[in-house]
Design a protein around this nucleic acid. Structure first.
Lengths: 249, 249
DNA sequence: CGCCCTTTTGAGGCATTTCAAACATTGTGG
DNA sequence: CCACAATGTTTGAAATGCCTCAAAAGGGCG
């Protein structure tokens, strides 16, 4: 998000004046509640591209909320291959999958300079006692994460690589829009290879498909900057993935 | 599970004498706790194959735990296609993805005659007040579900169809083993087509791959009954998906 | 300016899909 | 109890979309 419109937050930001209070788990809290919540939150970072918030296998120490920047969550399999699970943006909470056995089953790495908040695992009980309603919001955040995972499975279930890429671009568009950024113009925070891994297709295919969509006038791509020229056309590709004839709407 | 070893539970079963108390969210409760928990639980079913526990779009009314039988969870996309998200067995909790916006983003359908428990959404607050520690278990169940979803994504990220099928068979094996059933012999509760949809490959391919694995002596298949003849060989296929030469261990 | 890394573009091969038909299995009604 | 329908499964042959390997082109950064 850092690269998309919104300025990098100052170090003195806290939950009462945070940009993302409508997206974060604080969204249902009033000013007093947010001030109280802030007592349980530690600001961290900024960390640089490539640095990790946590590693697969690490003992759970806290839950995380992105404050600025962006993060890629991924899994390493026994066979050595890596699978990207999610890209996370400001306001997104991550790390609760570690609540199952107190160890992180995934890793999270910064895609760019990134700041984040942590909520100590030890203090979750106290937080819940102090702000009972916040549990509901945490559950909601978890449920949203589950739903996002379902979306990812649905995306991978789509046969055509084109449909996957189109779905991906639309997903990003919606998430940026939810954060007050442009729905139709944004910077990709990840490399082609990282997109490819997330979509479970080859990097070269991603490249080719960006080309295809550009030739058809559906999007304009310049390096990592994407402009969606026809949202309906992109949605059509996301649904049936048909390439075939002239379809630019 | 009904078809795998364990007898169908009697109608008088409750949380204090439930077969699945080591898997269910009650697993950390003592006898008194379970008795208390049982006050919040309603027994439902049995329902028949094809009947639904809940439908995508339904208003959230309760959380669900399978007691006997098996369930398929799936998503309908706008384009009309369907994507299987998970297969659930006794002790598994489902439905909490609806906590995000109070409506179910998925549907759940019985694969066979199935009984289940419901925990009314309205009474979750009272339950939490009465049994504070149970929240931790519910969070754990949710985290397990998230982890399972990551596993599904990893599975779909694997390129070869053979690796996907092998991973799937191993996943089932582990889950049956966790429930005290045989790890190496079990009945599939779902059709070939349902497996294919879950794995995002064609039904015909599933058929062919079952044949391949059988010819190679890795498994023996008779209709829906599967016997794993070589766990190591199946694991090898799950990791690299290489078919190539003689590899029967 | 030159090196390195990412991205793009090209050509060929192959795994998987698709379409189609034979086959088995289960359930149903006469 | 059998014939038949309906459904699910297997098998075959051809088409194709994506991957792999390889090389060139473009940016970023010292």
């Amino acid at each position: 998000m850092q690269s998309n419109v919104i300025a990098f937050p100052s170090a003195t930001t806290n939950c009462t004046n945070c940009h993302w209070s409508q997206i974060c788990v604080t969204r249902s809290l009033d000013a007093a509640g947010r001030a109280e919540f802030a007592r349980y939150v530690t600001h961290r970072g900024p960390i640089k591209r490539g640095e990790k918030l946590f590693r697969q296998g690490d003992k759970l120490s806290a839950l995380y909320v992105i404050r600025a920047g962006s993060v890629r969550v991924y899994c390493d399999s026994e066979s050595g291959s890596e699978q990207s699970i999610a890209f996370q943006y400001p306001g997104d909470m991550l790390g609760f999958d570690a609540l199952a056995d107190s160890h992180h089953p995934t890793s999270a790495v910064a895609l760019e300079t990134t700041s984040f908040c942590t909520i100590s695992h030890d203090r979750l009980g106290a937080l819940a006692a102090s702000l009972p309603t916040v549990w509901r919001e945490i559950m909601r955040a978890v449920a949203l994460d589950v739903t996002a995972n379902h979306g990812h499975v649905q995306l991978l279930g789509q046969r055509s690589a084109l449909a996957r890429l189109a779905s991906f671009l639309l997903n990003l568009a919606n998430r940026f829009a939810a954060r007050g950024c442009s729905r139709t113009e944004y910077n990709l925070n990840m490399s082609r290879q990282e997109i490819a891994n997330y979509l479970a297709i080859a990097g070269e295919t991603v490249s080719r498909l960006f080309g295809e969509l550009q030739i058809r006038g559906v999007i304009a791509v310049d390096r990592r900057f994407v402009r969606i020229l026809s949202l309906p056309a992109l949605q059509a590709f996301a649904q049936d993935g048909a390439l075939e004839t002239s379809r630019s709407a």
